[in-house]
């Protein structure tokens, strides 16, 4: 482990004080094995207490620390600085209002999740024990349940940027997750919601979401299956 000098350029914005976001450069020394989160902590704890950002688990599962580093959406906690070299450019996720510095307003993101009814809708009675679901049936939705709602996908989606009404990849992936769950009886209700110009049809298969996903979920592929399902349903 060795110390190296890095230059971190961070987009700063404090409401009530700054008219608009501006860049601030921190030239600091950090351990060469540091993550982006380590860099932010170092700045916040040792150099400038006013820096704001979200973080919690440190292990790529809580989804708090998605941000844009050198143009790519990443989780700060799992991303080593050596991936980018010694010049870092750190900014908040695009497409969301900035609350302060790197913390953005995710309320609209979570509100979209609620719109697709993200819970099993059941017509059948509950069994005494568990529903039977084969490994193959689980496989159909397995990967989609790994989504940590970090919003990296939505922030990378060009279709989401100009249109705040678009459900976006995360909510649509969640719709997929329930529509394709063998236990669920609510496909028709959800298909009605996603079969809309601001639903699946706003997805233009750009693949940015898939590239941005820190969990490597094949989002675009699942959204394509969702489109097929919507079409089949209307036939």
């Amino acid at each position: 482990m060795a110390m190296i000098d890095i230059s971190a350029k961070i987009l700063r914005y404090q409401p009530g004080k700054d008219e608009k976001p501006h860049w601030q450069v921190f030239d600091i020394a950090v351990e060469d094995e540091s993550t982006i989160l380590d860099v932010l902590n170092e700045i916040h704890w040792q150099h400038d207490g006013t820096l704001a950002y979200r973080r919690s688990c440190r292990s790529s599962i809580c989804g708090s620390c998605a941000m844009k580093v050198n143009g790519r959406n990443v989780l700060a906690c799992e991303t080593p600085i050596h991936r980018f070299g010694r010049k870092l450019k750190i900014e908040p996720l695009s497409g969301f209002d900035i609350i302060k510095d790197l913390a953005v307003d995710l309320d609209p993101f979570f509100a979209k999740l609620k719109r697709i009814k993200p819970y099993l809708l059941l017509d059948k009675p509950l069994p005494d024990k568990e529903f039977v679901q084969s490994p193959a049936q689980l496989e159909a939705i397995g990967e989609s349940t790994l989504c940590i709602l970090c919003a990296a996908c939505s922030a990378a989606c060009p279709s989401s940027w100009p249109n705040s009404e678009y459900l976006g990849p995360a909510a649509l992936l969640k719709a997929y997750r329930f529509i394709f769950d063998s236990r669920d009886d609510g496909a028709d209700q959800r298909i009605e919601i996603v079969n809309d110009k601001n639903g699946v049809w706003r997805c233009h298969t750009i693949f940015n979401c898939m590239e941005a996903c820190p969990k490597k979920i094949k989002i675009t592929e699942y959204l394509s299956r969702l489109k097929v399902k919507v079409v089949e349903n209307s036939l």
Partner: peptide, 15 residues
């Protein structure tokens, strides 16, 4: 499970 938790399954489809 009834809420929809995607538990890993045995070959015969149980938790």
């Amino acid at each position: 499970e009834h809420m929809g938790v995607p538990f890993s399954r045995t070959e015969d489809g149980r938790i």
